[in-house]
Simulated scan of single mutants.
Amino acid sequence: MNPLLEANGTFALNLLKILGEDSSKNVLCSPMSISSALAMVFMGAKGTTASQMMQALSLDKCSANGGRDIHQGFQSLLTEVNKTGTQYLLRTANRLFAEKTCDILASFKDSCHKFYEAEMEELDFKGAPEPSRQHINTWVAKKTEDKITELLSSGSVNSSTLLLLVNAIYFKGKWKKQFNKEDTQEMPFKVTKNEEKPVQMMFKKSTFKMAYVEEISTTILLLPYVGNELNMIIMLPDEHVELKMVEKEITYKKFIEWTRLDKMEEEEVEVFLPKFKLEENYDMKDVLCKLGMTDAFVEDRADFSGIASKEGLFLSKVIHKSFVEVNEEGTEAAAATAANIGLRCMVPYFCANRPFLFFIQHSKTHGIVFCGRFSSP
């Protein structure tokens, strides 16, 4: 297994678990987008700051060659996923914004551009924090087709801001087999055993790849987008099984094993899937601290001497915003052992009328572009 993909996949599932600690909440993030943005900062980290970032991003297995392999790996991955001429639209926006009085090293700026196609921009946070905030929001809106307009909320940038990492992602894809709008109807969604909410439930009868994982009593359905370059993978536990249990059991190795195309069987199936729109905005500082990346955010402990010659440079904020809309046409979004996998003689229908996990995966690289949990309409 490619060490970088394993690192990114492990990081993705760690994010899903931490962001989803409150099981009643919906979750949406783009782990590929976040990890590539943080890897850019990691290029300039030294000492304990660097080793903590490596641990948080699960990059320890790809650290040969002084970390150069990591950045070349991300360069290849981002080139593949963001390539032009695809039948989907995927736009990632990564940029570092630094206080203009910090003397940013030319070598760091060059590496950001080379490996991540990202610019390092210097702004006047000290003298003009509000115009700086508006400038960043305008840039993100432009990069994400105006789906993400207010990435930084009022007051989130101030005169003590030194280094800001912003990261946004937008995706729009059409289903290979679209749902018919006439078949969509209101149905109850079981938020909990005792609570139901109405959803607009889409319906499609067709052949799809499916698998049943006995280990976690969960059905997995694969819905391809036009061009087969991206798939949505839905993990729906049996009615008596709590989604929390599935989240606890899942590891990246198991996820890859469970979703192997050669293990899934094509079946004619009646699929019921709710239409939904999620937009989530996370200040990633708490999440990253939980993953062990603490020094980067502390003024007298952060070591970013590979970014600037000035001492005392620390990461003020890491903001991530993502957007996903699933409807009849497709998705618009802005981030075990073989013996355990078999197909039971199941009723040939898949009804996502209770909380489920979803992943949007890039077929060629197996990269998890988005992952989330739909718990409540």
Rank of each mutant, 00 (worst) to 15 (best):
K143H: 14
K143L: 06
K143A: 13
T144F: 08
T144A: 03
T144N: 10
E145Y: 09
E145W: 04
E145P: 01
E145T: 09
D146V: 00
D146S: 15
D146N: 15
D146K: 15
D146I: 00
K147T: 10
K147R: 15
I148K: 08
I148T: 09
I148V: 15
I148C: 09
I148A: 10
I148S: 10
T149Y: 10
T149I: 12
T149R: 13
E150T: 13
E150D: 15
L152N: 00
L152T: 09
L152I: 15
L152G: 00
L152M: 07
S153E: 14
S153M: 08
S153Q: 12
S153W: 05
S153K: 14
S153P: 11
S154F: 11
G155T: 02
G155H: 12
G155R: 10
G155S: 09
G155E: 11
S156Y: 02
S156A: 14
S156L: 12
S156K: 02
S156G: 02
V157C: 10
V157L: 10
V157G: 04
V157E: 00
N158F: 02
N158W: 02
N158G: 11
N158H: 11
S159Q: 14
S159R: 09
S159A: 13
S159I: 11
S159L: 04
S159Y: 07
S160N: 12
S160R: 09
S160H: 08
S160K: 12
S160L: 13
T161Q: 11
T161S: 15
T161V: 11
L162Q: 15
L162S: 12
L162N: 12
L162P: 04
L163I: 11
L163T: 10
L164M: 10
L164S: 05
L165R: 07
L165P: 01
L165Q: 09
L165I: 04
V166H: 06
V166T: 14
V166M: 05
N167W: 04
N167K: 03
A168D: 10
A168L: 04
A168N: 10
I169M: 13
I169H: 01
I169S: 13
I169Q: 09
I169A: 14
Y170K: 06
Y170E: 11
Y170C: 04
Y170W: 06
F171I: 07
F171Y: 08
F171H: 04
F171M: 01
K172V: 06
K172T: 10
K172Q: 13
G173D: 01
K174F: 01
K174I: 03
K174G: 04
W175R: 01
W175I: 07
W175D: 01
W175E: 02
K176P: 03
K176I: 06
K176V: 07
K177D: 08
K177E: 08
K177H: 12
K177W: 05
K177L: 11
K177T: 08
K177P: 00
K177G: 02
Q178K: 15
F179K: 05
F179P: 00
F179C: 03
F179H: 09
F179Y: 14
F179W: 08
N180C: 13
K181C: 03
K181Q: 12
K181P: 07
K181M: 06
K181Y: 06
K181N: 05
E182G: 08
